[in-house]
């Protein structure tokens, strides 16, 4: 067998092994990325699956007095209560009114248990001047 062929065989083995690892990692960490509205209308379909929910943090809903922080996120038509069970620090951008992405699953009591929170700056900050057109 020529060295060129050997390289291809060796390469293929490596790539196959990595592909398999990638597949496993994918299965373990994939999450469906949906909005709160989509979730509410298709509750059954997403039961038990890892989800990444996108919505706005409802003003005044953040409750830090419990051992695990709770808050409510909403999209135009529906909302859901979220309990943060993760260990990571909550990002600075997470405040009343910010856009949040919570990743986790729905607990038996109907509360969404989030293990990760990502937040975009409150839209207030990002918004451009209304007057702007040109």
């Amino acid at each position: 067998m020529g060295a060129g062929k050997k390289f291809w065989v060796g390469g293929l083995i490596i790539v196959a092994a990595l592909g398999w690892l990638g597949f496993v990692g994918f299965q373990e960490s994939k999450a469906y990325y949906i909005t709160v509205d989509e979730f509410s209308s298709l509750r059954g379909e997403y039961a038990g699956k890892r989800l990444k929910l996108a919505g706005d943090v409802v003003e005044g809903s953040i409750d830090r007095s419990r051992p695990q922080m709770e808050f409510v996120i909403s999209s135009p038509r529906s909302s859901i209560r979220v309990r943060y069970t993760g260990a990571d620090i909550i990002p600075d951008t997470f405040t009343d009114g910010s856009k949040a992405l919570v990743e986790g699953t729905v607990a038996p009591d109907g509360v969404f248990e989030a293990r990760r929170i990502e937040a975009k700056c409150a839209s207030k900050y990002e918004a451009e001047y209304d007057e702007r057109t040109s």
Binding site: A17, L18, L21, G22, V24, G25, F26, E28, S29, K30, A31, Y32, Y33, I34, K52, E103, R116
Partner: peptide, 28 residues
Amino acid sequence: MFPALSEWIRGTQISVGPLFFDKINVPI
């Protein structure tokens, strides 16, 4: 790009977490 690709092909966005990256990039 998976979220973008899955949305394009299947209509639902599926994202992968850090675990995926770790699992494959640590051996690499």
